[in-house]
């Protein structure tokens, strides 16, 4: 396994238990989806892997996280990036006052060789031709879709073995969602980068993922191949709806009515 979380527990502010005993495996070159409603603990799980809990006063209080055979919990966030983990945060979080080109350069502190950085830059612009057209505008003025591409492109500059993607489709028009998921699939298939994909758009995520975990209230409540998870009636009702589009209000309503799967 490339990444394995084993009974991980995360606490914020020393008191708030956000993730309770979560175990997740991502294989070399795998594409795994992590699904769940708002507040279920998806982002927290990703942060436990990338180490970004600390700035938010969160900590892994129990369990182990291993990456390529190493104990991740002993490493600080920049070392985890150097080990091969890149985290695309929820809400894109591009450097708004920097140009796309500068955004990409800012993510290359681990590379000493200029020629190598230049090659990576060209590769990224080849992945995202739309970014090269806007390479000199401040990233804060890019559209949501372009910012998401930039955030993913920026993460790829670190040459990750594993990409953690937190709700890449959030707030994007449907045709852009398709484009983003297409890119995710290509990064996974063509560049061989393993992906752990967090989504509320379960329909889209289950189209690309091989394996999926469903998390609710800080616990994994179901896992299996994408087909099995897709076919589950509870998931069907909660996430996939009738017309394959997700209605968040319906999800919440459903959860209030019945504490499903737990």
């Amino acid at each position: 396994m490339l990444l394995s979380l084993n009974n991980v527990e995360v606490v914020y502010d020393r008191v708030f238990l956000a993730v309770k005993s979560v175990s997740i495996d991502v294989g070399e070159g795998g594409l795994v989806a992590l699904l769940g409603a708002n507040g279920a603990g998806k982002s927290t799980t990703l942060k436990s892997v990338s180490g970004l809990l600390k700035p938010e006063r969160g900590a892994v209080t129990r369990g182990e996280i291993a990456f390529a055979g190493r104990d991740l919990l002993a490493l600080d966030p920049p070392e985890r990036v150097r080990a091969g983990i890149a985290h695309v945060l929820e809400g894109r979080r591009v450097f708004g006052h920097l140009t796309p080109e500068e955004n990409l350069l800012a993510a290359t502190t681990m590379h000493g060789d200029r020629a190598h950085v230049k090659r990576l830059m060209e590769r990224t612009f080849a992945w995202f031709p739309r970014l090269s057209e806007r390479a000199r505008t401040q990233a804060g003025y890019l559209s949501g879709g372009e910012q998401q591409m930039l955030a993913i492109g920026r993460a790829l500059m670190t040459e990750p073995k594993l990409l953690l993607l937190d709700e890449p489709s959030l707030g994007l028009a449907p045709f852009l969602v398709d484009e983003i998921f297409d890119i995710i699939r290509r990064i996974n298939k063509e560049a061989g980068v393993a992906v752990l994909l967090v989504e509320q758009n379960a329909a889209a995520a289950l189209e690309v993922a091989e394996v999926a975990y469903v998390i609710d209230n800080g616990r994994v409540v179901m896992n299996g191949t994408a087909e099995v998870v897709k076919a589950n009636p509870d998931v069907e009702a909660a996430y996939l709806g009738g017309g394959h589009s997700v209605d968040f209000r319906a999800v919440k309503h459903y959860r209030r009515r019945r504490r499903w799967l737990t």
């Binding site: 700035p55 990036v81 890149a86 708004g96 800012a106 502190t109 500059m157």
Partner: peptide
């Protein structure tokens, strides 16, 4: 320069800076 770009990145968003390996 790259060092300066990194400083500006840090001023824009510290969390995002951590996420791409900036110390």
């Amino acid at each position: 320069s790259r060092a300066g770009i990194v400083m500006r990145a840090v001023s824009d968003d510290q969390g995002a800076s951590w996420s791409v390996g900036i110390r």
